[in-house]
Nucleic acid binder design. Structure first.
Lengths: 127, 127
DNA sequence: TTACATAATGTTATTTTATAACAATAAACT
DNA sequence: AGTTTATTGTTATAAAATAACATTATGTAA
């Protein structure tokens, strides 16, 4: 279990506490009082945290969430459902989907490393 | 079958002819001789073409490809494999995956509208 | 046709997202 | 201690996307 550096910890904490995905510049403006002053500092921390599997990027929103899945396959397989009304993002941890998709990738002839899946629609509350 | 407007046709043609995903500003610089001079003109055409299901956006690359799938479910379900070495992007049209994932979404309690799936790894040539 | 509404276009400026480049520190290694 | 490697700090810039508003074209109904 890798320990986080100072900046990584600061950035992780704010993402982890948030109930919604955070954008890089929102993170930046929230950590400036802690001494992180410029975009590269944030983006570098984000890159490392993604590498470690501690956070994920929601590609369709350019936003970042903490991994909710304690047994997360070190970011090799990520899946989210995204509500188009309230913007709620939920990480899906379903081992069947993950097996199904990894198997598919293996069979397709590519050397598979990871996938990202994003569902869009209306969540229970909004539909 | 909707007909394309002038700008939509110009933008679609260049994407459709390309063997790789194109970025918005690459498209722009390639259509300036045809009278499309500014980013909003490109982005507006891209938005409409996506709506129609004629092209898809590769979210992880901010790039656009023509739909390869004549029976494409009007962009409700998109899946791609992306080679991390040569950057080749292939659209996957597999009705089993699409049924499997739509079913999953329906059962999850959300009102499902669409999904996007991106596989990463090495293609046959590069592995 | 004319009048009205709607969609598409043209244009300038700006916002948002992300990285290049390089100097300075800190941590890990031998 | 000295050397390598990772992390940080900083300035500037690149890349991706949109806001806002004026103009032109297209569709539609009296």
């Amino acid at each position: 279990m890798q320990t986080l550096t100072r900046n990584q910890q600061i950035v992780f904490d704010i993402i982890n506490k948030s109930s919604e995905p955070l954008k890089a510049y929102t993170i930046l403006s929230n950590v400036q009082k802690k001494g992180i002053k410029a975009p590269p500092q944030v983006y570098r921390a984000l890159d490392k945290l993604i590498e470690m599997g501690k956070i994920h990027k929601i590609e369709s929103k350019n936003a970042f969430v903490a991994c909710q899945n304690s047994s997360c396959n070190v970011s090799k397989a990520t899946a989210f459902s995204i509500c188009e009304s309230c913007e709620e993002v939920t990480e899906i941890s379903n081992s069947k989907i993950s097996k199904y998709l990894s198997n598919f990738a293996e069979k397709s002839g590519m050397e598979y490393k990871k996938y990202n899946l994003e569902f869009f629609g209306l969540c229970k509350k909004c539909k």
